[in-house]
Structures are given as structure tokens and as C-alpha cells.
Amino acid sequence: MTPEFGPVRELFGELVDSGREIGAGLSIWKGGTTLRQVLSHTAGQPAFPESARGLDLLDAGGLIRALEESAPIAEPGSTICEHALTYGHLIDGALAAAGAGTVPSLLRETADEAGWDVHFGVPTDGLVRVADLEYLDPGPPSARKGPAFAYPAGTLDVDVLNSTRWRQGSFPAIGLHASASGLAKSYWELTQSDGPVVRAIGPELLQEYTAVQASGLDHYLQRDVEWTLGFQIDEGDITMGGLGGSGAWYSPGLDYSLGYVTRGLGDHERVTDLWHAVVACLSDER
């Protein structure tokens, strides 16, 4: 695959022949939606449709089909809106159509090689290390993230998220389990010239992967954002935050990475305070 990518319908002819596109309804891809738009959160499908209401949250095939058959809420490429819940299923569908495995299987290959303590599906011997989640503030979980998390049910329910079934299942967007050291190591090695990511995709595609692809108001986050093909660029750092306040980043300017995980689900003020403290410490050293 080249950095230029191309329309999804061109890359995945199998679904074109069947009159569908993996990851979106035909009406979405018909105008030439590209993988770049999917990866940069501009594909127009930031939420699962109402047809996913009765689906089990670990029914990957059913959720992908629901996306295939649904119409976009915005013209692809026209609007930035983090696909916080649907991102992994959109990519998984495209990978399946290309016969390229799944997000969890590909992550497992890279993580095993690199020694990253990150998992889509925690192994049985790792379950004892998983902390139980709880909300720091009262209130119904459904009120926290708005309509983007309406379907399928259970994605914000701590009883579900603390279950063995969820921990060992695969939901390749919000289902990542990781240690702080695992996140810090993976972000540190993301751009290393001899790191596992460069070995997997090459330096040219890595440069494209971490370059800004879409910038402006993100209608989910309600703030200006710069998106790469999967990460945010914030104050020059390559970063992503978790729904409950966890976060990780690599700073090219100060040459460090940081991983922060918490079982106390809340906002990102805690990790933001840590960012300011670390930047102040490292800046004083210069």
C-alpha cells in the first residue's frame, strides 16, 4: 500500500463487485471515500447506526455489517469528528476484505515482537493484572459521551467493562488494555528509525502515518484538533487519550514518551497536569 492510498472501492474490488464497501454503506463510498478519510476521522461514520441497537457489543461481524448498510451523517472528507467507537470496526472491515487479518491480530504480532504490554484481548494469565474500573463522578454513563455511544449497549457500563468476557474479547477502538510502561514503550518506538513500526511499514509510510491529515474543529471533541492517520498532534506531540482519562504521547521536541493509565474514569485534567509538569521539568534541564 502506498502513502497516496486511494479510494476504498479501488483497493477492495471484491466489495465493489458485490455492490458494497466494507466500513461504510455504498452511499458513503460511492463518492470516493478514501482510507485516508477513514484513518483521519473524516469518513462520516462516528457512531453505530440504530440498526446496531440490539447487537452484542462483541458481535464484530454484526457491527461491521451495520456500518456497511448505514448512510453517513456528513459528506466524507467534509467534517472532522472523532470516530471514537466505530474506528476499529471500520478498519477491521477493510482489513478483512483485503485478507489482511484484523486490528487485534496485527497488533498482537507487533506487540509480541516489540515486547509491548498492550492487548486487544487479555490473555488468561494476564487477567490478574487488570484493575477494576469505576467512575469518579456520579451520573449515568450514557450521559457522558452523547449519541456517539448510544449503540451497542454496554460500552460505558463498568459492570460490562470489568467482566472477563470484555477483557478477553475484542473491540478494536475502546477495548485496549495496557500498562503505563507498555504505552510509553510503544509510543517511544513509534518513530524510532530501527523500531518495529518502521520495520513493518517502512520510513516513507511512517512519515505519512504521523503527518497531519485533517485539522480544524472536531465535532465530537468540540475543540480544534490535528489528526494524523490515527493519532492527534497536540503542541507538537504525537498523542491519544482514552475515554476515561488515560493517555500516552511521544514528544519529538523533548524526545521522551509517557504513558498514563487510571482505573478512575473521569476527564483528562489529571493527565494534562502531568504533561505540564513533565514539560516544565525537561525544559528546565535545557
Rank of each mutant, 00 (worst) to 15 (best):
K30H: 03
T155K: 01
R286L: 14
P252W: 12
G31H: 10
G121R: 06
A280V: 02
D132I: 04
F5L: 15
Q168S: 09
A114W: 01
K185D: 10
P123E: 02
F231A: 02
E14S: 14
I64D: 07
L205Y: 11
G264Y: 13
L35N: 02
L106S: 03
Q213S: 11
E226D: 15
A52C: 08
R199W: 06
L39S: 00
Q168T: 11
Q37N: 11
R9Y: 07
P152Y: 01
E189W: 01
G23F: 07
G202R: 03
L90Q: 14
R20W: 13
G61Q: 12
I201F: 11
A211D: 10
P252E: 12
S193I: 08
L190M: 05
A153G: 11
A143C: 05
Y87M: 04
L26Y: 11
R167Q: 05
A143H: 13
M240C: 11
M1L: 05
A97N: 06
V130K: 00
D132M: 12
G93P: 09
Y256Q: 12
Y135S: 02
T2R: 15
Y256L: 05
W166E: 08
G121H: 06
R9P: 00
R36V: 02
L229T: 09
E285M: 13
R20T: 14
S105Q: 12
W249C: 13
I174W: 02
Q222C: 10
P138N: 11
S105F: 03
W116D: 03
D117R: 02
A277S: 12
V16L: 15
S257A: 14
H83L: 06
K145T: 10
L95R: 15
R263Y: 04
Q37I: 07
W227M: 09
V278N: 06
P123T: 04
T124W: 10
V278T: 10
G247A: 03
E82Q: 06
Q213V: 02
R20L: 14
V278W: 07
A60V: 11
A153P: 05
E50F: 01
Q213A: 10
F12L: 15
L190Y: 03
V38R: 03
V158L: 08
W166D: 10
E226R: 15
E285G: 10
D92Y: 08
L254T: 00
T191L: 11
Y250A: 02
E109Q: 12
S40Y: 03
R167E: 01
G101S: 08
G77Y: 13
P172S: 04
P147H: 04
L57W: 08
L265V: 09
V122F: 05
D125P: 00
L136R: 01
I73H: 03
G195A: 10
V278P: 07
D234M: 09
G139Y: 10
S105P: 04
D194N: 09
C281L: 13
V8F: 04
D56S: 15
W227C: 09
E226W: 13
R65N: 14
S27L: 13
L206E: 12
